[in-house]
Design a binder for these strands. Sequence first.
DNA 1: CGTTTCACAAGTCGTCTGTATTGCTATAGC
DNA 2: GCTATAGCAATACAGACGACTTGTGAAACG
Lengths: 200, 200
Amino acid sequence: MPKRVDHEERRARIAEALWRIACARGLDGASLRDVAAEAGISLGQLQHYFASKDDMLVFALEHISDLAARRVGERLRGLSGEPSPRDVLLGSVREMLPLDDKSRTGHLVQIAYFVRAVHDERLRRHAKEGVPGLRAFFAGQVREGQARGEVAADRDPEVEAALLIALVDGLASYAVLEVWSAEEALGLVAGHLDRLFGVR
Amino acid sequence: MPKRVDHEERRARIAEALWRIACARGLDGASLRDVAAEAGISLGQLQHYFASKDDMLVFALEHISDLAARRVGERLRGLSGEPSPRDVLLGSVREMLPLDDKSRTGHLVQIAYFVRAVHDERLRRHAKEGVPGLRAFFAGQVREGQARGEVAADRDPEVEAALLIALVDGLASYAVLEVWSAEEALGLVAGHLDRLFGVR
DNA sequence: CGTTTCACAAGTCGTCTGTATTGCTATAGC
DNA sequence: GCTATAGCAATACAGACGACTTGTGAAACG
């Protein structure tokens, strides 16, 4: 057999090139030739690693959501000792806002996929399966807040979790459009959390 | 001179055909030929009314935002006699959620434009100029609620307005992805308003 | 040492895109 | 009734697209 190459590593490199293009011109503006050029490889080589454009798109989506989940996990592990539910939620939310360039890129890619998901059953399933997990995690934190007496007992954790997710997502979208800055968005959601956690 | 045709009316018809395509396959999936076919006219005729594809896109965006604003206005005028700020806000919000098929179409079109706005300066200005108006309107309603003693005086109307806009937008986006239904979204935002207006 | 098999490059195919051009028809004004 | 012109159809065009095929080199195995 000839020399062996780490396929996953190559595919990851190509996916990152795709993100750079999608971030600048959108997913529909990313042709196979563009991505290959951005990755510094030939079109033939790209096609060697992805049988079709759709394969490339799906792989890149899974890869980026893996990385995003890892980032959130690391941030939460980085919280000192016994973090309060409020801190956990704020930390998670911080990772969901385009606060730095890397995060902004991730958001632009996410948006590119969002649009495609509207018309693509396969991608839509991705979103439908991913949200409940995040919602359950947020709801758990709210419940923990209730157990500590920081959150009013009559709040429905599931409802608060959904509200928080939708709120952050809306704030992030407008931040990407530069209607307001990511820092303003963070301030707004922090205020929302303050009210939820009864600091008032 | 030969026969005269109502250009604006023809352009509106073409724009509506564009929406139907964009709703089904996205804006990038809408070629001039597709739009012409959907509108039941020839490519040549379409070109007679729009010098370029970009012209068509911009016109269609302005046309749909005009219609959306008109819909909100009509709903608010339809409210009985002396509507409370809470009812005005809920009525506006109701028009911003994909509750029926027509509204869902509008949302899909809006999303299609949203993605394009991320990479298109001209479209982004549209969004940046439109939001402050809505935000000021919402803030005014919150202030009215405070004057009536329905909203706590320590709430910042501008902050609450921004939160409401972002929340509704996030809820609507997930509703389009079918993560939750538009009715659930309406229930969630209604609960949010209940808390803002102290019904608790 | 030959054969197999993976890695990759290059070229080609048919299709689809937005735009441009050409020409025909019908009508309003003189 | 002639002519100018708006309305419109048909076609052409150059470029880009995704998918596919073919060819070459090299490394590992028998």
